[in-house]
């Protein structure tokens, strides 16, 4: 799927894996994405989790964020909170299993940080990662962006 799309953009002369490598080097950090639109970025076995820029845009103005208690053990794909706009509530899911080390308390004061900077200041929680192998199940940024483009191209 990925290869086809890259080819269709006229980059077929270059080997897809090389393009991917280049893309990764220039993209915003080593984020991995879940199909449910959360990202995770890992440093020293601690994962920072947030929602994707695409999800934040689709959700609209965030007015309330529900986050878990520190110390809570989360299973991969389990819901740990919610991000709410005027109209709707979106559950957020943990991309991998782990223990909640920290939550972004700034979001209680200013939930719109998620709209302003969903990949940075609008992060949700930090997790102590239990099983790094679970990260392999997630998409890299290029693959994730592909899925969002497929949806919006309808």
């Amino acid at each position: 799927m990925l290869r086809y799309t890259l080819c269709s953009k006229g980059w077929s002369l270059r080997h897809p894996s090389r393009i991917l490598q280049t893309y990764r080097n220039f993209s915003s950090g080593n984020r991995k994405y879940a199909t449910t639109h959360e990202w995770i970025k890992v440093e020293d076995n601690v994962g920072t989790v947030g929602i994707s820029k695409h999800a934040a845009e689709e959700l609209g103005e965030v007015v309330y964020v529900d986050l878990p208690e520190k110390g809570l053990d989360l299973e991969a794909k389990s819901t740990f909170g919610a991000v709410e706009s005027v109209k709707a509530a979106s559950d957020v899911y943990s991309p991998v299993s782990g223990q909640v080390l920290d939550i972004n308390s700034k979001l209680q004061e200013d939930p719109s940080l998620i709209n302003k900077d969903s990949l940075g200041e609008g992060w949700l929680i930090k997790l102590k990662i239990q099983n790094p192998k679970e990260l392999d199940q997630l998409m890299d940024e290029v693959a994730y962006l592909e899925t969002t483009q497929e949806k919006s191209s309808h």
């Binding site: 449910t36 639109h37 999800a55 919610a82 109209k87 709707a88 509530a89 979106s90 559950d91 957020v92």
Partner: peptide, 9 residues
């Protein structure tokens, strides 16, 4: 990801 308000159930 989405759970919706009743209006758009």
């Amino acid at each position: 990801m989405m759970r919706s308000a009743g209006f758009f159930r």
